[in-house]
Design a protein around this nucleic acid. Structure first.
Lengths: 254, 254
DNA sequence: TTTCATCTTTCCATATTATGATAAAATAAC
DNA sequence: GTTATTTTATCATAATATGGAAAGATGAAA
């Protein structure tokens, strides 16, 4: 699944895999058995790693139900990371400015495995329903402009892999067969940003643009969600220009 | 420093130590040399572990300045953990209710090593200056009611250890020698909650109460920050009662 | 620019550490 | 109460992480 780290430290690779499996699974946590099955690790090994992680509070364990979930340290590291020179604080000002200039709901999404996760958002004047909901919410990559905008600028090979993996989950969304995702990707590549006008959630529109790392790979996206009713000619292009300007600022600080 | 995990997985213990050192250090990141000195690990070992963690994006590296800091995964795990049945989501409603009932700024603090970290907050009607600032900010344990309320209910031995370690840093605060911290701890143990009225930041008052885990150990605290000017007789007791009620709810869900 | 000192990265033989088969204990299901 | 499933613990073995040493980078001072 995830590319194993170069120089090799088996134990760390395995621990990282388990963290990912737990983070991606049911928020109520995963049982040892589930993790053994998902990871393919030996039961004893898996057990040992999990308990060491619990010892360091990177994981927490519901003793009654014997389920492992992300631990208290994750809150803390997350909160700390948000203060450092990372994505969230680099985008904080941009989110605030975009929200102020347009009055719309703005959000910062990040890519994680096959999902797109909401890292931060500023609510707009109108309450709008969004795919991901609040911070921490996720959708499969392929659903929604925030996620399409990232997916569109990945390697062809990776796109194929992700869409194949997500095919079933995308089916849960309104009128979103994989072929449509491919079409959206194509349009997004040409346009430079992703647009959705009432297709996924009736009456709700979105515009989003990817943020790339030094290597040019999209790692996050910045976008708006607003009511279709507000649409006027040129609005989307206008919003896209605002996103472009902020993302230029953000990427310059890479 | 940190209690090494029971059954022993040296590599994981070391990785966890490095994560802690980086999380607790300068948000701009730490260099290899610094981490080698702090951890006591062999340079090659340290380098290998750090780079593996970077590979998994648990850490990020500023290539130009060769500094390691918390990585993108930490945002994601943090955001995810906040959704699960952990502290933040268990306290979300409480923060909102407390804010609504009083109109004051409310916060959730957690203990991490020798620091108290702001995990979540709801801003009140008046903008008040707080010790920790926004989410992710930290103060040494011993400074401020949120932090004193947790410290007060730890073992004597641990209190001594922490205050000794934090002595120098506490000196940076307004009129807070270690002896005063001890007095505040004593008062807090008797009262059941911590109070500060304009002593640390002139004109700013705070009330806070600890949240305990199943074992009765304080792991977090819930509190208010408000203007001294608002003080009326019985206000503090009233606020404390509100905190008590919410914390009872939260602890019941342990 | 050149020199020197500091810090980072790679290499590789070694033995320490993690591994996983097995069995025991604890739950859950029947 | 019995059986099936899942979670812990044990321990000999081999694969893995270790750290000394040396090469490469980087940056400061002359």
């Amino acid at each position: 699944m995830s590319v194993s780290s170069a120089g090799g430290s088996q134990l760390l690779d395995r621990a990282a895999l388990l963290l990912d499996l737990i983070a991606d699974g049911n928020p109520e946590g995963a049982t040892l058995k589930e993790l053994v099955d998902l990871s393919g690790l030996n039961t004893a090994t898996c057990h040992r790693i999990l308990n060491t992680l619990v010892g360091h509070r990177l994981l927490a364990r519901d003793d009654k139900r014997k389920r492992y979930r992300l631990g208290a340290k994750m809150f803390i590291y997350g909160a700390r990371a948000a203060r450092g020179p990372g994505l969230i604080s680099r985008c904080e000002m941009s989110l605030a400015r975009l929200r102020k200039k347009t009055g719309e709901t703005t959000h910062l999404m990040a890519r994680h495995n096959h999902d797109s996760i909401c890292l931060d958002r500023r609510d707009g004047e109108c309450v709008v329903q969004t795919l991901t909901g609040s911070i921490g919410g996720s959708v499969p990559l392929g659903a929604g402009p925030g996620s399409i905008s990232m997916l569109a600028f990945l390697d062809r090979e990776e796109q194929e892999f992700i869409l194949r993996a997500n095919a079933a989950r995308l089916g849960d969304f309104r009128d979103l067969p994989v072929e449509k995702a491919w079409r959206l990707i194509e349009e997004t590549r040409i346009r430079g940003y992703a647009v959705d006008i009432g297709e996924l959630i009736p009456g709700i529109a979105g515009v989003a643009m990817p943020i790339r790392n030094e290597a040019g790979v999209p790692v996050a996206s910045l976008g708006f969600t607003f009511l279709c009713a507000k649409m006027t000619p040129g609005l989307v292009e206008n919003y896209a220009a605002l996103l472009r300007a902020e993302i230029d600022l953000i990427e310059r600080r890479n």
